Simulated assay, not measured.
Amino acid sequence: MEYIRVSKDNLEEEHICCAISNNKDIQVSSKKAWLADRFDEGLVFLKSVERGKCFIEYIPAEYAWNPINAPEYMYIDCLWVSGSLKGHGYSSDLLNECIKDSKEKGKKGICILSAAKKKPFLSDPKFLAFKGFQVCDEADNGIQLWYLSFEKSVETPCFKECAKYPRIDEKGYVLYYTNQCPFNAKYVPVLEETAKNNGIPFRAIRIETRDQAQNAPTPITTYALFCDGDYVTNEQMNDKKFLKLVNAKAKRKPGDS
């Protein structure tokens, strides 16, 4: 497999989104704008020549848009291999390149979000364990921080206190999100319109700065949906999925789990 490193110089020409073919799509333009501001902070976006169907995106942890403490670590935003490209070792190729690059840059290790069981848009814990990663912290909603250390004696990464117990005070549905994920540019407005048309209390909060992201009330900042203060999911939704969730919660009696 041949890989391309996306940079400021080729960002406009390169295809970066595995499920979006049109580079002029609002989803692509929002993601590219987000990337353009991260390259000077050390972000690396390495993708296959297969129109972005497999890629890795990582950044020095101090610049990560997540509430973590991971000094001198590299943080992996996303490691993604889709469709027919799965099962050919491309995830290992990309991860190995990240490890090599991180070591050359003097990092102590790398870290990434996952969970005990595979969750949408998070790396597979079985793959991470196979590659030598270990869990170093866990929020009470089951989101875990995994790490791979390059040294025997090194401080392990951890979540900031604001992310350990993902809850908020606001009632109704509240969505925290960033433009790091391109799909948000399309589907967040869909949820806003759906909620409005159906009288559902809903507020979308776009995280616009690194400082906001690093102090967010959730380990996952790309997409975190809350309901009446409780964390619900990181799975992006269209109108049908959202209404199904709302209806299911409405049918539950107080005290139901």
Rank of each mutant, 00 (worst) to 15 (best):
E2M: 05
V6R: 07
K8Q: 06
L11Q: 07
E12Q: 14
E14L: 05
H15C: 00
C17H: 08
I20W: 08
S21G: 04
N23S: 13
I26N: 09
I26L: 06
S30D: 06
S30K: 07
K31C: 14
A33K: 14
A33S: 15
W34I: 14
A36I: 14
D37E: 14
F39Y: 15
E41H: 09
E41V: 05
E50N: 05
R51A: 11
C54M: 13
Y58T: 00
Y58M: 03
Y58Q: 00
P60K: 01
A61K: 05
A61N: 04
A61S: 05
A61D: 11
Y63A: 11
A64G: 05
A64H: 09
P67F: 10
N69E: 13
N69Y: 13
E72D: 13
M74S: 06
C78F: 10
L79F: 02
L79A: 07
S82Q: 09
S84N: 12
S84Q: 12
H88D: 07
H88R: 15
G89K: 05
S91G: 13
D93T: 11
L94P: 00
L95W: 09
I99D: 00
S102Y: 00
K103H: 10
G109H: 03
L113M: 03
K117G: 01
K117H: 05
P120S: 14
D124G: 07
F127Q: 08
F130T: 12
G132A: 13
G132N: 11
Q134P: 00
C136E: 07
C136T: 15
E138K: 07
D140Q: 04
N141I: 03
I143K: 03
Q144W: 02
Q144N: 07
Y147G: 03
Y147F: 12
E151C: 09
V154L: 06
V154G: 08
E155M: 12
E155T: 15
E155N: 08
T156V: 08
T156Q: 06
P157S: 08
F159A: 03
K160Q: 12
K160N: 14
E161A: 11
Y165Q: 13
P166I: 12
G172T: 02
G172P: 02
Y173M: 02
L175C: 10
L175Y: 09
T178G: 04
Q180R: 05
C181M: 11
C181Y: 10
A185H: 01
K186W: 15
V190C: 03
V190W: 07
E192Q: 15
T194A: 14
T194F: 02
T194N: 09
T194D: 03
K196W: 11
K196A: 14
G199K: 13
I200W: 05
R203D: 04
A204L: 08
I205P: 01
I205G: 01
E208F: 04
T209M: 11
R210G: 03
D211R: 15
Q214P: 01
A216I: 03
P217T: 04
T222D: 14
F226P: 01
F226L: 02
D228R: 00
D230M: 11
M237R: 11
M237Y: 08
D239R: 10
K240S: 04
K241M: 09
L243V: 11
L245S: 01
N247Y: 05
A248Y: 06
K249Y: 03
K251A: 07
R252T: 01
P254M: 14
